[in-house]
């Protein structure tokens, strides 16, 4: 864990070398998704609600998902850009170091400019809760934190899974973006607004559901998810990292027996 923060510190220092570029990228990261949100606001201005969800409810979820996505993009960026590492052979370097490979790939890149997006997520989240009439118990506040944590782990797991594919195909898989960027785009709305197969896919295969409509309905005291046990459901998202890392280790084994 200590070494993880050492890596983070190195990257912060590296990125601070180019301060102007850093600040501009942060601002960009803030505004790009923010304009999408402005679009959302205008849409609600016309239609009032989306399959029964109000603007503030959607904003709450939107904020949470963007917080999670920005954290995972900042921290797990190394996996996102991993295909280049296999192609150039830099992965060999990691194999001669006495640390687990996943930890080293994690340390191979941090993208601190995502702070802009994180800030944007927080602001929209605050706008969201500002307009909702919810009695904030300690458990409900924890649920929000669990949602951010769970969603971060699910997205990180996706990044790891798609990074692992680069052991077989050297080219980065553009298709991966369907699940990562696409997953983000979908889950920023309550999944119940989509067709049944999509709901099922994002609940049972990629478990975004546990950080999406289930805890959201718990927060809003809506059935059938109003039982306190659903407060902890988002933490199941953390478990998604386990199969992701197992798949990663399988990929590393394959690499070691074939080379690149």
């Amino acid at each position: 864990m200590k070494i993880f923060f050492r890596y983070a510190k190195m990257w912060l220092k590296s990125q601070m070398v180019y301060k102007t570029s850093f600040i501009l990228l942060c601002i960009g990261q803030f505004f790009v998704p923010f304009f999408v949100f402005v679009g959302l606001y205008l849409m609600f201005d016309l239609f009032d609600s989306l399959s029964g969800w109000s603007f503030n409810e959607v904003a709450l979820l939107y904020g949470v998902i963007h917080m999670a996505f920005s954290i995972s993009e900042c921290v797990v960026r190394g996996f996102d850009s991993f295909s280049g590492m296999v192609r150039t052979g830099d992965f060999d370097r990691l194999l001669v170091r006495p640390l687990p490979t996943a930890l080293q790939v994690l340390g191979s890149k941090f993208e601190f400019t995502r702070i802009g997006r994180l800030l944007q997520g927080i602001i929209i989240f605050v706008i969201g809760i500002g307009g909702i009439d919810v009695e904030w118990t300690l458990l409900k506040m924890s649920t929000v934190a669990f949602m951010v944590i769970g969603a971060t782990f699910i997205m990180s797991g996706l990044f790891i899974i798609f990074a692992t594919f680069s052991f077989w195909t050297i080219e980065g898989l553009e298709i991966a973006n369907i699940f990562t960027d696409g997953g983000r785009e979908m889950t920023q709305y309550p999944l119940l607004i989509y067709a049944k197969p999509i709901q099922k896919f994002f609940t049972f295969i990629v478990p975004f559901g546990v950080v999406n409509y289930i805890p959201l309905m718990y927060l809003l005291d809506r059935g059938p998810y109003d039982h306190p046990v659903y407060a902890f459901i988002p933490l199941m998202g953390v478990l998604f990292i386990v199969p992701s890392l197992l798949f990663w280790n399988f990929g590393v084994k394959h690499y070691k027996s074939t080379g690149s």
């Binding site: 190195m10 220092k13 590296s14 070398v17 180019y18 060999d92 370097r93």
Partner: peptide, 8 residues
């Protein structure tokens, strides 16, 4: 191949 950090 380098193992040093480029910018620091």
């Amino acid at each position: 191949r380098t193992q040093l950090w480029w910018d620091v």
